[in-house]
Amino acid sequence: MRCPYCGSLDTQVKDSRPTDDSSSIRRRRVCPDCGGRFTTFERVQLRELTVVKKSGKRAPFDRDKLMRSVQVALRKRLVDPERVDRMINGLVRQLESSGEAEVPSEKIGELVMQGLKPLDEVAYVRFASVYRNFREARDFGPLLDELSSEEGGPPPEKSKQDV
Rank of each mutant, 00 (worst) to 15 (best):
R2V: 13
C6W: 00
C6S: 04
G7C: 04
G7F: 00
G7M: 02
G7V: 04
S8C: 03
D10T: 02
Q12P: 01
V13G: 02
P18I: 04
P18A: 11
P18R: 12
T19S: 14
S22D: 09
S23A: 06
S23Y: 05
I25C: 01
R26Q: 07
R26M: 04
R27W: 04
R27H: 04
R28F: 06
R29N: 04
R29H: 09
R29K: 14
V30M: 15
D33P: 00
C34H: 07
G35L: 09
G36C: 12
G36H: 15
R37A: 09
R37H: 08
F38D: 07
F41Q: 10
E42H: 08
R43F: 12
V44Q: 09
R47A: 12
R47Q: 14
L49A: 03
L49N: 03
T50W: 10
V52C: 07
V52G: 12
K53E: 08
K53L: 06
S55G: 05
A59F: 00
A59H: 02
P60G: 13
P60S: 15
F61E: 08
D62E: 14
R63V: 12
D64E: 15
K65C: 00
L66N: 08
L66R: 05
L66A: 04
L66C: 02
R68A: 15
R68C: 02
R68I: 07
R68F: 06
S69M: 07
Q71H: 11
Q71D: 11
L74S: 07
L74Q: 05
R75E: 13
L78W: 06
L78Q: 15
L78F: 12
V79R: 00
D80S: 06
P81T: 09
P81Y: 14
E82R: 11
R83Y: 00
R83C: 07
V84I: 15
V84Q: 06
M87L: 14
I88P: 09
L91T: 10
V92I: 14
V92C: 12
R93C: 02
Q94Y: 06
E96V: 05
E96R: 04
S98M: 01
S98A: 06
G99V: 07
G99Q: 08
G99M: 06
E100Q: 13
E100A: 14
A101Y: 02
E102T: 12
E102L: 10
V103H: 02
P104K: 10
P104Q: 07
S105H: 06
K107I: 03
G109P: 05
M113R: 13
M113I: 14
G115M: 08
L116W: 11
K117S: 10
K117H: 13
P118G: 11
P118A: 13
D120K: 05
E121F: 05
V122S: 03
A123S: 11
A123W: 04
Y124R: 08
V125S: 00
V125G: 01
R126D: 00
R126F: 02
A128T: 15
Y131G: 00
F134Q: 01
R135G: 04
R138S: 15
F140N: 08
F140W: 09
G141P: 00
P142R: 06
P142C: 03
D145K: 15
D145H: 11
E146H: 11
S148Y: 14
S149H: 03
E150F: 01
E150C: 02
E150N: 11
E151K: 15
E151C: 03
P154A: 12
P155H: 01
P156K: 12
P156L: 06
P156R: 12
K158C: 01
S159Q: 03
K160E: 12
Q161I: 11
Q161V: 12
D162G: 03
